[in-house]
Design a binder for these strands. Structure first.
Lengths: 206, 206
DNA sequence: CCACAAATTGCACGCTGTGCAAGTTTTGAA
DNA sequence: TTCAAAACTTGCACAGCGTGCAATTTGTGG
């Protein structure tokens, strides 16, 4: 009985490990070789896996590279979902997205943002990630508010919130090329600031 | 003197024609064969051009498909640029983006939106188009407002405006599968509505 | 008419993404 | 323990993509 807390068993763990290995290899390679100059074969070899297996886990090199961004958005969705209902929607979102900055290894997320500047394909992958997150949040909001609410209202609202969050992260990633461990508070401040502007209808240009 | 208004001459016209021919062929093919199932060779052949020439004009099949969206955003940027300065920024943008609905062949734009639902690569290309438009508009706004304004303010604002416009277009494209010629007013109403919500800080869920 | 510039084309090459059919590993039950 | 089924990995083949290069065709200007 070596197993402690594994209902799924060892197979599932292997998949998780492989997935992590591939993603880490991709990130390390992107750091070393530069954003756009590395092949799937290199990633696979570096992760100790065949080329074919790589494609069993990801559709492209950029998708593997983008795992961190994806997990960040996953976290944001999760935090929002467990937020208490009834409060004003925008305040709920400010709280939720502000709290996402406590994610592990925040510095690498900023790094990923900066990589996208030199790699169009990676940029597209990231935009796609935000887009999918948007539709999921829209769904969650509509379930929360009930059927009486305008669909346009919800999509416009959620889109704007994510745009502001994205703007805050880009601003933060651009300013802090060296990631202090305490820069989480910095990012959170920017997110809250941008979303507060949104709540005020962008009335104050300062 | 057969030339009337052609300083560049015939060569330039040929390029324009070829570009149009390729884009039209791509769009026609996407309509007929479905969003994701057509090759560059098909497009090139259908446009009466070699495969290699296709890649002299576009980087991918999706980019060729996306020409209409690109021109729409180009128009939006142009209209915004010639808007008088001094008025409240958001009202200026409401006017500018509302006016874009007078573009030619509006129905095909909606069609393009709908195609993106079944073609991830096309969706990414479209998101990328919006992203580039965003940076250009941010630049224009910062020139207009002068150096004293917060960069985060501008990026968050422009991002939100474009998100609302996008939401309005998606809403419109989803509702009107058959494009009446008078649906421009319909789209304009939605855009104005979404941007007004933004100006109100999304205070009224109705 | 002709030389020059610009655009088109074919060719070659490496890389991508996927279906398929073999291997290999894990699982759960006998 | 043993073993068969299920899940995962791998190699192979193949169509398609994107690009550099050199040859060719086409428009431009003297």
């Amino acid at each position: 009985m070596a197993e402690t807390t594994e209902p799924p068993g060892r197979r599932a763990q292997n998949k998780i490990d492989t997935r992590r290995a591939i993603a880490d290899a991709a990130f390390a390679l992107a750091r070393r070789e530069g954003p756009g100059s590395f092949t799937v074969d290199q990633i696979a070899a570096s992760a100790g896996v065949s080329r074919r297996t790589f494609f069993n886990y990801f559709h492209s090199a950029e998708e593997a590279l983008n795992v961190r961004m994806e997990s960040f958005l996953e976290l944001a969705i999760g935090i929002f979902a467990e937020q208490p209902a009834g409060l004003p929607l925008l305040d709920t979102m400010i709280a939720a997205f502000g709290a996402t900055t406590q994610v592990q290894h925040l510095g690498t997320h900023g790094e990923l943002f900066r990589m996208a500047a030199d790699n169009p394909e990676l940029l597209r992958a990231q935009l796609h990630s935000w887009e999918r997150a948007e539709t999921r949040i829209v769904q969650a909001v509509e379930e929360r508010l009930g059927p009486g609410v305008s669909h346009l209202y919800v999509t416009a609202l959620v889109g704007s919130v994510l745009s502001c969050t994205k703007a805050a992260m880009q601003d933060w990633a651009g300013e802090s090329p060296e990631p202090d461990d305490a820069s989480g508070a910095d990012l959170e401040a920017r997110i809250v600031r941008a979303l507060s502007m949104l709540r005020d209808g962008f009335a104050h240009p300062a």
